[in-house]
Amino acid sequence: MRRERARPREGWSDIIESQGLAFHRSAHPEGLARPYWDESVHYVFTMDEVLALESQVEELHEMCLAAAEHVVATGRLADFGIPPACRTAVAESWRRRDQHVFGRFDLRYDGTGPAKLLEYNADTPTSLVESAVVQWFWLRDVFPGDDQWNSLHERLVGHWKTLTLPTGPVHFAWTNADETGEEVMTLGYLQETAEQAGLTTVAVAMEDIGWDALNRRFVDMEHRVMRSLCKLYPWEWIVAEPFGPHALDQQISMAWIEPLWKMLLSNKALLAVLWELYPGHPNLLPAYLGGPRELADTSGYIEKPLLGREGASMRIVTPGAGEQVRTGGDYGAEGFVYQEFLALPDFDGWRPVLGAWVVGDESAGLGIRETSGLITDDTSSFVPHRIHG
């Protein structure tokens, strides 16, 4: 694994916008000099590295499924801050093995040892357009003789074909609250893959979904019954909404992508459960609920809210030096997990996080975000990669 520089393509901004990355100008907070999509640099991997990472990702995914089984079997949903009113529905969704489509692991990797799991974005993963489409065309334009860890598009189309869905169109719902456009473009791409799989689809805003109280069903603006819904609206938000009880009641009659049981894998309490079940596993970092335990006196720790996003509401604490970093945010009322602090590797002053994708239960591709700080947040940039040699 190494970081290299390359000359950006002439007109690169117009190129990536035509490929679906229309939100790259708004993806960053204002005032940053570095663009969100940065093809002036990229990472290079060997095929052996990628094959090893693929194997590790699939093992991690299987471990996460085993952790979900453990949590449901032992009744530990309270450890995840899941509200009492929806715990039974979450457990039943898992027992039914409600169908799922995709997720993204965030990994620490420096090319010299096993990848370390930082978290699992299993319910509402983004950076999909960049990973599946935009960096693939970059590779074809700039390094046509090389390969890429990227079978996302083919696997998504193929996986949609395997799902058993109710009759009627599949609805793809974004929220008008997203001002960047990332959510609508991501869902638009997912909708395209579903259509290529032969499914009939409809796009709708979450705010435009209605409830037919007489017949007890969700309907769209055309009063069509909604029987399959793909969304990037987090489940922890849905169950807290006024329509949340209706969504729970519709678990059997509707297909939800991602399913309700993904509340267990998208929650950072998962990190502590994994460490309990697989202590010392080479792809895990020690993690605990309730406090940092021995980490306070050894390596230090990072305090993560169970439901935090974009690096918000986190703290890094190291022995002797105390608190090193604290990020802003309003998360944390649901509780925290305490994970061993292992700084992201430094490549020319930038620190990459590997976003390793899973479609169904198989490894499917890689997207990389870089930051200059110790915590990856909304100032990070997406950079492409290639496989050489």
Rank of each mutant, 00 (worst) to 15 (best):
P259W: 11
G244C: 09
L295E: 00
E303R: 14
P282S: 10
L264M: 14
P305R: 05
Y278R: 11
W256S: 11
P245W: 08
S299Y: 10
G300D: 08
A240D: 14
P305M: 11
L260D: 02
R309W: 11
G244A: 09
A296S: 13
D249R: 06
K304S: 09
R293G: 05
P245K: 03
P259V: 12
P292Q: 05
Q250I: 00
W261P: 09
Q250A: 15
E294P: 11
P279R: 06
L270T: 08
I252G: 06
K268L: 05
L277A: 02
E303A: 14
T298A: 12
Y301V: 01
P245F: 01
L248M: 14
W256F: 15
L248R: 13
P282F: 00
P292R: 05
K262A: 08
I257K: 01
A255W: 13
L248D: 11
K262P: 06
D297K: 07
P242Y: 03
E276T: 12
A247L: 13
L306V: 06
P245T: 09
L289I: 03
E276R: 15
N267T: 01
Q251L: 14
G300L: 09
V273I: 14
M263G: 07
G280K: 00
L285R: 00
V273C: 01
P279M: 07
P292T: 07
L248Y: 07
E294G: 05
L285E: 03
L274S: 06
I252S: 15
W261K: 01
G244W: 12
M263K: 10
P245Y: 00
N283H: 02
N267D: 08
Q250S: 15
L248H: 11
D297W: 02
L306K: 09
P292L: 02
V239M: 13
E258Y: 06
S299Q: 14
G291P: 06
E276V: 02
W275I: 05
I302M: 15
Y301M: 01
I257Q: 12
P305D: 06
A247Y: 14
G280C: 01
K262T: 14
L295R: 01
L274Q: 04
Y301W: 13
E303N: 02
K262N: 11
L307Q: 11
E241S: 15
G244D: 09
L289F: 10
E276M: 10
Y301P: 05
W275A: 08
P242I: 00
Y288D: 04
L270A: 04
P279D: 06
A240C: 10
L265S: 15
I257P: 04
P245R: 00
L285Y: 01
L260C: 10
I302K: 02
Y301K: 04
